[in-house]
């Protein structure tokens, strides 16, 4: 029995050592694609709330098309489909796919956050001579942040997990490394336990960070309707 436990510990340790170099890739893919998603999502949500002719309509189409297609299909389309003409490397294709997919979800979150700010806030800012951009930058976005942070953070955690899908195009992140290990040593059970545990450690850590951010953006007495 003791012998078996010792064997198991050695086995998990060797899996852990094999997987650990792939973790930074998972982190890198997640952060890069989420940064892309944040920028695209913000631009698209602003285009949608500003009701710019044609552009706003196209932004709506973008959101609905992207959201309606599975991430795996995005990955295949960008890497194999577009890749046929544009020759992306695996990393670029993976990041583009995850980033574009999540930009659509974030755009909807941002839009609801921006729309939650009362019309009176825009009027007050405009009556003080602020431009549309200044109003957005100094009045609307700061107030939307606290509305938008919790659901966006959930998307970030989801995108970390979804980054495992890019293993399918051979990008050597955590899930891919797991597949490599078990196809060499046939230790399916222990390998996937370890892969899962590493994802879990990352998502739990992020959950703590999010709680902290929420506290950071809370403002004394904020939340009353008539201000």
């Amino acid at each position: 029995m003791l012998n078996w436990i010792a064997e198991q510990i050695v086995l998990y340790w060797s899996i852990f050592r094999y997987l650990i170099p792939a973790v930074p890739w998972t982190v890198l893919i997640t952060i890069t694609s989420f940064a892309l998603a944040l920028i695209l999502g913000l631009i698209i949500s602003i285009i949608r709330i500003w009701k710019i002719p044609v552009l706003s309509f196209l932004a709506g189409v973008y959101v609905n098309v992207i959201r309606g297609v599975p991430l795996l299909v995005h990955i295949f389309f960008i890497y194999f489909g577009l890749g046929k003409y544009l020759n992306f490397d695996r990393f670029t294709a993976g990041v583009l796919a995850v980033g574009i997919c999540y930009s659509a979800y974030l755009a909807e979150i941002f839009r609801s956050g921006l729309e939650a700010i009362s019309h009176g806030q825009y009027e007050a800012a405009m009556s003080l001579g602020m431009t549309r951009f200044q109003t957005l930058r100094y009045v609307v976005i700061p107030q939307s942040l606290r509305i938008v942070i919790p659901p966006s953070a959930n998307e970030f955690i989801a995108s970390l997990k979804d980054s495992s899908l890019v293993s399918i195009i051979g990008l050597r992140e955590l899930t891919r490394a797991g597949r490599e290990y078990y196809s060499q040593f046939f230790t399916d059970f222990q390998t996937w336990i370890m892969v899962g545990a590493l994802y879990l450690i990352m998502t739990l850590t992020l959950t703590r960070v999010v709680k902290y951010l929420e506290r950071l953006f809370a403002v004394k007495g904020f939340g009353s309707r008539t201000t």
């Binding site: 009176g120 806030q121 009027e123 001579g129 904020f222 201000t227």
Partner: peptide, 17 residues
């Protein structure tokens, strides 16, 4: 025009943040 004209609203519209 808006630089010339100040406005005060019924609902205050202060910036709550």
């Amino acid at each position: 025009i808006r630089l010339e004209v100040g406005m005060v609203f019924q609902q205050f519209n202060l910036f709550p943040h």
